[in-house]
């Protein structure tokens, strides 16, 4: 249900390329959570990606051009929110540094950074959401994506909101703050190490006794889900927003609908 109240905060959704391409349901879950919390949500058409593939490959010039494009596309909104700690971290923590030598662009990047948030921490910390009206019957473990945790301070917010989900119980995940081994292109540049890291993660997920693994970043989730599936472990992976929005009824990540 779209909000028309002009005093409601105008929030631009930074969908993230992975959600856009692989799991639109996460985008719709984000929209629902934001709208339920009283936001007017818009999705700028000119968005593609946050530029991390170039930035982390050392291609600073391309990263700058993409950053400039993102800054322009998201100008003027009260908030810019991403269902990803990694992409939000890129916009908030790294864009300003890309324009250290260009005062005007630096100011625009700082302005975007100030308005930019990761979805769940935005709901909890900025909008003051303390509970959601959702139900999920299962035992879930939450993996802290690295950028969300260390760049955006996302730790207790998803857990606090998950506590309010009816039927859900949270399992302790040993090593929840350890990287799953995704790392963008790392996972294909150093597959042996990456697979080893994600195997450690899936072993911990299995040991937690959870039937569902949640996280706030689709990159981590595709990696962990892919490994869980390869190992034949009966654990489903979903984005935390899907559960919080009560939109976790469909197939989990990497799961077919042939059941």
């Amino acid at each position: 249900m779209a909000i028309t109240d002009k005093s409601a905060p105008r929030v631009a959704l930074f969908v993230t390329c992975l959600v856009d391409l692989f799991r639109p349901n996460v985008g719709f879950a984000a929209v629902k959570l934001l709208e339920d919390a009283g936001c007017r949500v818009e999705v700028p058409r000119a968005q593609t990606c946050c530029g991390q593939p170039a930035y982390n490959a050392g291609d600073r010039a391309t990263a700058r051009r993409i950053a400039a494009q993102v800054i322009a596309a998201f100008e003027g909104y009260d908030y810019v929110v991403a269902p990803s700690g990694s992409c939000a971290g890129m916009l908030k923590r790294h864009f300003p540094g890309l324009f250290a030598d260009d005062a005007a662009m630096k100011a625009s990047a700082d302005d975007l950074a100030a308005r930019c948030h990761e979805l769940v921490s935005f709901l909890h910390d900025v909008l003051g959401v303390t509970a959601v009206a959702a139900r999920y019957d299962g035992v879930v473990a939450y993996h802290d994506g690295c950028s969300g945790l260390r760049e955006m301070g996302v730790k207790r917010q998803p857990r606090a909101l998950l506590e309010s989900v009816a039927g859900l119980s949270l399992a302790e995940l040993e090593g929840a703050e350890t990287c799953c081994g995704f790392g963008g292109t790392f996972c294909v540049k150093y597959p042996d190490i990456s697979v080893r890291m994600v195997s450690d993660k899936t072993a911990e997920v299995a040991a937690s006794g959870a039937d569902t693994l949640l996280a706030g970043d689709l990159g981590c989730l595709m990696n962990i889900a892919g490994r869980l599936s390869r190992e034949g472990r009966p654990v489903r992976a979903r984005h935390v927003a899907e559960v919080l929005a009560g939109m976790a009824g469909g197939p989990a990540i990497g799961e077919g609908d042939e059941r």
């Binding site: 996972c187 540049k189 994600v198 892919g226």
Partner: peptide, 19 residues
């Protein structure tokens, strides 16, 4: 995508983009 699938299945897209 051998780097990915050497140790992981590749979760397929839902089929339509969000946008």
């Amino acid at each position: 995508a051998g780097g990915w699938t050497v140790g992981r299945d590749f979760p397929a897209p839902e089929g339509r983009t969000f946008l």
